[in-house]
Design a protein around this nucleic acid. Structure first.
Lengths: 150, 150
DNA sequence: TCCGACACCTGAAGCGCTTCAAGTCAAACC
DNA sequence: GGTTTGACTTGAAGCGCTTCAGGTGTCGGA
């Protein structure tokens, strides 16, 4: 009789990991550092069971995390969430600021992508023994690097 | 008489950090784990001095690192580099693979960005008490999340 | 000549996970 | 009924840095 009293919609750590994109180890870690409160357990096995409320919270954290938000930022989000509509303006600002940061990051990454592609071209030209193409790739690499900012 | 015998083009760790985008601590760390070989020192002060050859190497690593390459990948790159043209095909493949990975990452990040912006809209609508706008933002958030892959 | 100020040094600890080692629980096969 | 399989548990160690604590070397000014 396994976990008869559990709700059907409760997720195992494996399911929670699959749905959220967090590794199982990360879910355990987040619980340990207090981001998730205490997650319910199956009484007999001691395995974690993620109910709907926790699951939703995990989903939201997953989005924020994959958008580059730090653990500190996620804590802030949860604090604001607890305040509800009273903290709506702060929430808006939190998301807007994170969006701007991410937009800037993406722009930089696109430069890095161009760099990598030109480097691939460069070595390809070398494989083919095409000195002219190699020279052009070198110039393109240089041009891209000049646009890097740190 | 500070470091009279040093070459003028040698960089301090601070300059190297500024030019490469690595933190000074990261430069020390990379040296410790053997990514940079042994960096020369100013004899009297014991401070690191990055000569042109090392500086170029650091620059290249910086590009790779900021394009998402792992330390393992960077080691591989340095190995191949030592082989010169003999490993040109492997270098091309290394860069091409890294480029593909990064392109996929960027695509995901653009979704996260859309998510963040819609979330900001959502809270903004709530601040303004605009239920219709809020409802629309909720739908947009949902639509974006459905396109997430992990 | 002494005094900060500052850049740098090393070694150790912390962070956000990830990986690993050793063990528990439950369904399933022989 | 044992035993294997597989998902799960905890605690500890590792990774790639980052931060911190405590100290050294160099310089410019009083």
């Amino acid at each position: 009789m396994p976990a008869t009293r559990q709700h059907a919609e409760d997720l195992t750590i494996q399911e929670m990991a699959r749905r959220s994109g967090f590794a199982e180890s990360t879910l355990r870690y987040y619980e340990k550092i207090g981001l998730l409160g205490r997650v319910a357990r199956d009484e007999s096995s001691g395995h974690r069971r993620y109910g709907p409320a926790v699951a939703e919270r995990v989903q939201a954290l997953s989005c924020l995390r994959s958008a580059g938000m730090t653990v500190t930022g996620m804590r802030r989000y949860l604090e604001l969430l607890a305040l509800g509509d009273a903290a709506a303006a702060e929430q808006r600002d939190l998301f807007a600021a994170q969006a701007e940061t991410l937009a800037a990051d993406i722009e930089q990454l696109q430069l890095r992508l161009a760099y990598l592609r030109h480097k691939a071209e460069l070595w390809d030209a070398r494989v083919r023994g095409d000195a002219a193409a190699e020279q052009q790739a070198v110039e393109e690499v240089t041009r891209v690097i000049d646009r890097f900012t740190y």
